[in-house]
């Protein structure tokens, strides 16, 4: 009896120790992850101008950076530009990516394998290797300096990003859409009314990525968007981090980052579940 008691006791002790240790570790890790986030949020409320400070957190707090950001800089325009592209891109890119994936997953036609192999090879070239030619082509269409150039470029590339989607679609049962087809529904209707609802996690995942792209893209945007008014937030805010600007604009940059981050982070947190499903599907199907 005594022996059993002892093992139970030591077992309990290990368990408590383990619980404390794991919780502590998790807490420390989260804290580590939060340091940059906290710093940028704090800087956004700082009364200082540059990033140089004697303390980690600002000594006095103010809301002026946000007010200045929206009244004295081009930031509202940038935000509007990016939002427009992001929303348009979400709709169009998601449509073209999913429909390409749907076709390649469900139809069997002659040049199908060839198309897939070509897109695979195209994906292996470093993307912006072709930027100069893209710039040339866009300038032939007289689109340089316009935000629509970005949108056209994103949407034009949408068809090539089908791999993750197709991998997911391949796992969905084929009988449902086949029987709908036999019942006389058109493919477009099957796609919108039966297939997409089935593939909801993937749909949301693709849409989320498409929505994120304009916020994060720097290379093409910096090349194409030459005038100050047509910039996206990524290009605009990056220009404030230039060594000649940073000492004046840093806290405004921080405020801008907070403004940009809030909606995106909210989206991510709420759509976390779909996101996990999307990336696991994409990862496993390669």
């Amino acid at each position: 009896m005594a022996k059993a008691d002892k093992t139970i006791k030591s077992y309990k002790a290990t368990r408590t120790f383990d619980a404390i240790w794991s919780n502590l570790l998790a807490f420390i890790l989260v804290a580590l992850w939060m340091i940059p986030v906290l710093w940028i949020v704090a800087s956004a409320f700082s009364t200082q101008i540059g990033y140089i400070s004697t303390t980690f957190f600002p000594t006095s707090w103010t809301f002026d950076n946000f007010v200045d950001l929206f009244t004295k800089t081009k930031f509202p325009q940038w935000l509007l530009n990016t939002t427009i592209i992001a929303i348009a891109n979400t709709v169009l890119t998601t449509f073209f990516t999913t429909i390409t994936a749907y076709i390649l997953s469900r139809f069997r036609f002659k040049s199908r394998k060839l198309l897939m192999n070509i897109s695979l090879i195209l994906g292996m070239f470093p993307g912006f290797m072709a930027m100069i030619a893209v710039y040339l082509i866009l300038s032939m269409f007289n689109l340089i300096g316009s935000i629509w150039a970005l949108l056209i470029y994103y949407v034009a590339g949408a068809g090539l990003g089908f791999f993750t989607c197709k991998g997911y679609f391949d796992t969905l049962p084929k009988d449902i859409d086949e029987s709908a087809y036999l019942d006389g529904a058109s493919h477009l209707r099957i796609f919108f009314q039966i297939f997409l609802p089935l593939a909801k996690p993937m749909l949301i995942y693709t849409a989320l990525l498409a929505f994120m792209a304009p916020w994060a893209d720097y290379i093409l945007a910096s090349l194409v968007l030459t005038s100050d008014a047509s910039k996206t937030v990524a290009v605009g805010l990056y220009s404030w981090m230039d060594s000649t600007m940073i000492n004046v604009y840093f806290t405004k940059f921080a405020a801008g980052c907070v403004v940009v981050a809030i909606p995106i982070v909210t989206l991510y947190i709420f759509l976390q579940k779909f996101f996990i499903e999307g990336i696991s599907a994409g990862a496993v199907k390669g």
């Binding site: 989260v30 940059p36 980052c257 995106i264």
Partner: peptide, 12 residues
Amino acid sequence: LFVISMALPQFV
């Protein structure tokens, strides 16, 4: 909280 770091645009 961890998702925040992933959701932040990389340039930020």
